[in-house]
Amino acid sequence: MHTLYPEIKPYARHELSVGDGHVLYVDESGSPDGLPVVFIHGGPGAGCDSSSRRFFDPALYRIVTFDQRGCGRSTPHASLEHNTTAHLIADMQKIREHLKIDQWVLFGGSWGSTLALAYAQTHPERVLGLLLRGIFLCRPQDFSWFYQEGASRLFPDYWQDYLAPIPQAERGDLMAAYYKRLTGTDQIAQMHAAKVWSIWEGRTATLRPNTQVVERFAEPHRALSIARIECHYFVNNAFLEPDQLVRDMSKIAHLPGVIVHGRYDVICPLDNAWAVHQAWPNSELHIVRDAGHAAAEPGIVDALVRAADNMARELLNMPPATGG
């Protein structure tokens, strides 16, 4: 089993103004002359952390990580103003240009896979390949499954806690009910709703219970950006057209891609990855038989690190690695 590469520190940090009052945190690590890869985090609203850069061999990759609008170390925190998928695609272009990168590999999981696909379909000439985990197509049925009815039947105990802040009369549209509280003026109600929303996701992210994952989602600063930004995107269908990502797969059909998806992913069920793979003959699909959604699960880590190693060697025309 492959594990994450050892901890490394960034060799450069940037605060990049992208307009509309937003300033993005960006850092670079690994080899300055290596194969450029950008880590696209999930949520939207989750931000990056020190483990984000550890999926890549630092001797081969120039690793770029950044916090999307409104989350992590980017400012203003939890802001919904001028925060759409089109804005994030434009931000990635500004980061690429600022760092003088011509083409890069996209690495994204969950919402990060959504944004990676949307970016690649908009700017295919800037993409060398894609490494995707836990595909999230942001279709109406995907939102309904996790936030209205579906996953609720697998986790009725956790679901009761998710329902608790919402009166019975408003439970016919739970995302709208949460959006009302997450954008309201009552800060106590806002933070309570944010923590409940985020903890529901953290509790269901792994195949086996993982208190560290739940605690990470429950941390107030992170929970506020996750809940507000996710709900903002999801009530707006992620600012995508119906079935846009699968419809436009022909735009990136020539690009190499690897999809890693947990068999028991409850947040983003496997049919998301299956639909993308069927529309993308040049992709590889690796179904991890004993994993859920989280990137931290051992089988997911193993598959992603292997995929990143293999893609670097292929794109750099290096011989395949030997041994395990």
Rank of each mutant, 00 (worst) to 15 (best):
A177N: 03
A194F: 07
H232Q: 09
K9V: 07
G19F: 09
R306M: 05
V26I: 14
V301Y: 05
E149W: 02
P242N: 05
D91T: 03
A227C: 01
I252D: 13
D243M: 02
G324A: 07
S51A: 14
E241G: 09
E28P: 04
H22G: 12
S110I: 01
V266R: 13
A308C: 13
R69N: 07
D102P: 00
I101E: 11
E170V: 01
K94P: 02
W159C: 12
G262I: 15
F136N: 04
K9H: 10
T85N: 04
P36H: 01
R222V: 14
P220H: 12
R228W: 08
A275F: 02
A189I: 06
V105K: 00
I135E: 04
E297C: 08
A307G: 07
T322W: 01
D20Q: 14
F234L: 08
A116D: 00
V26W: 14
L128K: 15
V258R: 15
A12P: 13
L154Y: 15
A177D: 03
A218V: 05
G109L: 01
L117Y: 03
S225G: 13
I252T: 13
S144G: 00
L316W: 01
R247V: 11
A151D: 04
E219L: 12
K251N: 03
M311V: 07
Y233T: 06
E81M: 02
R153H: 11
V23P: 03
I199N: 04
C231Y: 01
W274V: 09
Q244N: 09
D157A: 12
F66L: 10
A46H: 02
A279C: 11
A223W: 12
S225E: 12
P298H: 06
H261V: 03
R139I: 00
R69V: 06
D33K: 15
A291D: 15
A193S: 10
S52W: 00
R222A: 11
L163T: 01
Q103H: 08
G112C: 05
D290S: 11
Q212C: 04
E170W: 02
K94E: 14
L60K: 10
S29Q: 09
Q160G: 05
P44D: 03
G30I: 15
T3Q: 13
V127H: 04
A218M: 07
Q187D: 11
H123F: 04
V18N: 12
E219N: 11
Q187R: 13
L115E: 10
A78R: 05
A321N: 10
F217I: 11
Y119F: 06
